[in-house]
Simulated scan of single mutants.
Amino acid sequence: MAGYTSIALGALLLLSCAAWGSATVYTVGGSSGWNTGINYTDWTSGKTFTVGDSLLFNYATGAHTVTEVNSGDYDSCSSSNAISSETNGPTTIQLKTTGTRYYICSISGHCGLGMKVAVTVGSSGSPSTPPPPSTSTPSPPSSTTNGNHSSAPGLAPASAVASLAGLVVLLF
């Protein structure tokens, strides 16, 4: 009986760890980082951003900025009404709310060369809609998987938790 108890407790611990590690850190641009000439619309394609995830912008301090702007300023590459701006690279931004977030590089000419990314953030467990298309130039495909999920899978469904809890009770 003690063996079954250990297995049940181990399964419960494993499930708890999966729930704790559900946030994902996305390296913006993958191995190319935050730079000109990258098609960030292609980079966001197929990714699902949720509240709690983070965006890691890899760039050298002084070479670029990460400036959050509204939709209109994103389209026109203007940072005159910036929501926030970071100048020290690398920069990590935690996605705390749902909705579309817009980021550009505010150094003159960089946004026009493709340094802008829009991410649509959904709530945990619900898929997000893709960001609007960008007019940036495409980048060659990368053979690395940088920028993909770098953490444990998402939260277990409530039914799985209830089933596991029932199993634990049964074993005792």
Results as ranks from 00 to 15, higher is better:
residue 21 G to L: 10
residue 103 Y to P: 00
residue 116 K to D: 10
residue 119 V to H: 01
residue 102 Y to A: 11
residue 113 L to M: 14
residue 75 D to N: 07
residue 139 S to M: 02
residue 55 L to M: 13
residue 81 N to P: 06
residue 9 L to M: 04
residue 73 D to A: 04
residue 37 G to S: 12
residue 100 T to N: 06
residue 11 A to T: 03
residue 101 R to T: 00
residue 59 Y to K: 01
residue 100 T to I: 15
residue 108 S to P: 00
residue 35 N to V: 01
residue 154 G to N: 04
residue 158 A to I: 11
residue 72 G to Y: 05
residue 66 V to G: 06
residue 133 P to E: 07
residue 32 S to W: 15
residue 73 D to N: 15
residue 45 S to Q: 15
residue 9 L to W: 13
residue 35 N to Q: 12
residue 169 V to I: 15
residue 64 H to K: 06
residue 160 A to E: 06
residue 62 G to C: 02
residue 6 S to L: 11
residue 34 W to P: 04
residue 121 V to D: 06
residue 157 P to S: 08
residue 28 V to M: 10
residue 77 C to R: 04
residue 72 G to K: 04
residue 54 S to V: 12
residue 40 Y to C: 13
residue 106 S to R: 09
residue 28 V to L: 03
residue 63 A to M: 07
residue 112 G to Q: 14
residue 35 N to W: 05
residue 68 E to W: 05
residue 7 I to C: 07
residue 169 V to S: 14
residue 124 S to V: 15
residue 93 I to D: 01
residue 146 N to D: 10
residue 81 N to E: 04
residue 130 P to K: 07
residue 138 P to C: 06
residue 4 Y to K: 14
residue 145 T to H: 09
residue 56 L to R: 09
residue 130 P to L: 09
residue 148 N to W: 10
residue 35 N to P: 01
residue 166 G to Y: 10
residue 71 S to P: 02
residue 126 S to G: 01
residue 136 S to V: 02
residue 5 T to C: 02
residue 33 G to N: 10
residue 76 S to G: 03
residue 112 G to F: 13
residue 112 G to L: 08
residue 21 G to P: 00
residue 143 S to A: 02
residue 5 T to L: 14
residue 84 S to T: 15
residue 115 M to P: 01
residue 99 G to A: 04
